[in-house]
Write a protein that binds this DNA or RNA. Sequence first.
DNA 1: AAGCATAGTATAAACTTTACACTAACTTGT
DNA 2: ACAAGTTAGTGTAAAGTTTATACTATGCTT
Lengths: 245, 245
Amino acid sequence: MALLNKHFRSPFTVDNVIFGFDDEDLKVLLIKRGEDPFENKWALPGYFVKELEDLDTAANRVLEELTGLQNVYLEQVQTFGKTNRHPSGRVITIAYYSLIKISDFTKNLKPGSIAQTTAWFSLSKIQHLPFDHSDILQACFQRLQKRVRNQPVGFELLPPKFTLSQLQSLYEAILNIELDKRNFRKKILSMDLLIELGEYQEGVAHRPAKLYEFDKNRYKEFLSKGYVFDLSESKKQMAKVNGYH
Amino acid sequence: MALLNKHFRSPFTVDNVIFGFDDEDLKVLLIKRGEDPFENKWALPGYFVKELEDLDTAANRVLEELTGLQNVYLEQVQTFGKTNRHPSGRVITIAYYSLIKISDFTKNLKPGSIAQTTAWFSLSKIQHLPFDHSDILQACFQRLQKRVRNQPVGFELLPPKFTLSQLQSLYEAILNIELDKRNFRKKILSMDLLIELGEYQEGVAHRPAKLYEFDKNRYKEFLSKGYVFDLSESKKQMAKVNGYH
DNA sequence: AAGCATAGTATAAACTTTACACTAACTTGT
DNA sequence: ACAAGTTAGTGTAAAGTTTATACTATGCTT
């Protein structure tokens, strides 16, 4: 309809903060830009949205072209639209983050693909990013920190079979706090969402840990009973973490 | 820069879910559309964003033109970009909600302004809205329900001086649950964020209630001490509300 | 076989949340 | 002026949740 033509049009991108976890650090996949502005700088991966493409589809496209992965946890976070955020003209970006199993990633890399110009960076070591990508990264990370306490999304970052210690390390890395082993286990197991597989870790130089699996069906039932996934801490504890009493 | 011209451009709007509270119900301000598509239907207010206008600015513009109000609580929620969401062509919309003091609103209405075609609707009575506005409304309402438990935004919907009963009704209306009077008061007062004014309600046919004010400065201090605003309920309670045990 | 590294486990104390019912203060109608 | 009506305001005990804390178990390495 002609009416729409009266109005300003902007190009749109989706930028995708791809998180991974390597048993130690929370990492983010960055891409070395192949064109100006900021050619050869590391930046968040993002693509322009196509005319006939939904936003979620575009975000999944970024992800698949970079990692070869499909059906990955993806969440829209915030839209960044300051008129001057891109030096070449107005570009609005819709920020997403996704959670991938870092081990799957390496398997799916095709030689010569665009993914050859990507690398994982520990979140804590990322300094300045071009455009407003630091703001975008921060918004996505903060969203993840909240999400992980109230939704069972952490499992998206772990292999399908994992140990409780891995799970705890993941939470410690994302939330940047230390957790008590016994209390953590009690809490997560009390929700009764993990299946104890009866299998054990292999190839470790110490007592092997039991392997667990997150059970999506039990989680559906859990929700339908009105229960709420919750790994948050009391106000008192939160104050302490921040160094107050 | 020429590079941007390669890419698809879309017109985009901000839609703003304007919430108000009338001591009874949570309400939403709708506008009767003056043009096709959906002429004369009630819909969420929204405007096309201008070339040199930031998104937040545009959202505030919607608000001010409709209500005459400035400096109002405003939060971006989600961007809706399905290719077919608008029958006349692709339009991406960035959804915001705002919280206003409904009493301020009526004062600021200019006769003959666009606001003459607006009306407040109880949230519970709104049925079908045009476009994907029902989805937008739902997303904004859900965001508000979460926000109100973890941030002191409820006060934005009340007059500067309010009673604890009004505050409780507000929470009950937003969360759609019943709260225990004694426990609610204990909890909100224990955060020590309200100033007891020593003034009382007037013109009511019963014992007049004390008036309180929310103290933004105390809240800043509260935050800087690492405390967290929290009016949430335990998992047990949540389960009960939903009819389970 | 000793040493090393991580896995795995229980309980008591502190704290938070919940359930619950009566008196106080003001207005209205007689 | 007083009775009836309406909402305001208040404390406590029981139940539940969170926290702090330290030792034994199991497998690998040397």
